[in-house]
């Protein structure tokens, strides 16, 4: 049926292919082969300011900022983060600012971050902590195009609350004396989203507040009312993060709440 030439062609092709496949297999093997496992200590040492801020705590009390992009001060045209803005506004109190926030992080990620040495040391050495946490969780839910059922909302809320419980518990465990300021959320969307979602966001805040009030050293600071009639000038150009005016308002409210404690 086939001539000799075709057979030899098929032979050669398939043998070459086999060799190619075998080499590909070996390359894949080498790609996935684990390298010498990285030492945790190496990783910690390469990070800046870890040892330092552990050492120079005695001089001034340390203000630790944890959380998402709001804690980082994204949207602030002056480039200050939340902690720096607080310290520059109220110069009479001297603070050593440590900002360990991660833009775009969700609550779940913070359960893991807090297990790392860097975060533990920082929490242990701080006397005031600002936390801005659940913005990205809520943003994901609120901006999704689909409406979820009530039970799905409840499920998301419960898993978030569980994570938050772990995070707060960890902080208390590391440092029972530190004052924690937990920032609530504003809703940057105005009337652009469905009522059901706004109600869900309120429920989210309410549950968060209940959880936080269990700890005497923690305080929940609502921001919704602050932003409600100021969305135009308190929001930055991206219509999501606060502007420098918005950050200033947040900082002033924080100061109004904790001013008596820190005396």
């Amino acid at each position: 049926m086939f001539s000799k030439y075709i057979w030899s062609f098929i032979f050669i092709v398939s043998i070459i292919l086999m060799l190619i496949f075998i080499s590909g297999y070996f390359i894949s093997l080498s790609i996935t082969a684990p390298k010498e496992s990285r030492d945790e200590s190496v990783f910690i040492d390469t990070l800046p300011s870890n040892k330092q801020n552990h050492d120079d705590i005695p001089a001034v009390p340390s203000l630790l900022v944890l959380g998402d992009s709001i804690a980082m001060g994204i949207g602030d045209s002056t480039g200050m983060d939340l902690g720096t803005r607080y310290a520059t506004t109220y110069k009479e109190e001297k603070w050593h600012i440590v900002n360990l926030s991660v833009a775009g992080s969700e609550t779940k990620a913070w359960v893991e971050y807090l297990q790392e040495d860097l975060y533990r040391h920082s929490v242990q050495s701080s006397s005031l902590i600002f936390i801005s946490l659940c913005g990205n969780d809520l943003k994901k839910i609120v901006t999704s195009t689909t409406l979820l059922s009530q039970s799905e909302y409840d499920l998301l809320l419960t898993s978030y609350l569980d994570d938050l419980k772990i995070i707060l518990g960890t902080i208390i465990l590391f440092n029972p004396d530190t004052q924690v300021v937990f920032l609530g959320l504003y809703i940057p969307y105005g009337n652009a989203i469905e009522m059901q979602k706004i109600q869900f966001a309120f429920k989210w805040h309410y549950k968060t507040q209940i959880l936080i009030e269990e700890y005497p050293t923690m305080v929940y600071i609502p921001l919704y009312d602050l932003f409600k009639y100021h969305l135009n000038d308190y929001l930055s150009a991206d219509d999501f993060h606060p502007s420098s005016k918005g950050y200033q308002a947040i900082v002033e409210r924080i100061h109004a709440v904790i001013t008596t404690i820190s005396e």
Binding site: R38, F43, T46, L47, P48, S49, S69, M72, I74, L100, S101, V102, A103, G104, Y113, E116, L118
Partner: peptide, 14 residues
């Protein structure tokens, strides 16, 4: 932009 921002943060795990 968000990814670059995240990369700039010295505190993301290696």
């Amino acid at each position: 932009a968000i990814l670059f921002e995240r990369l700039d943060s010295p505190y993301i795990p290696e």
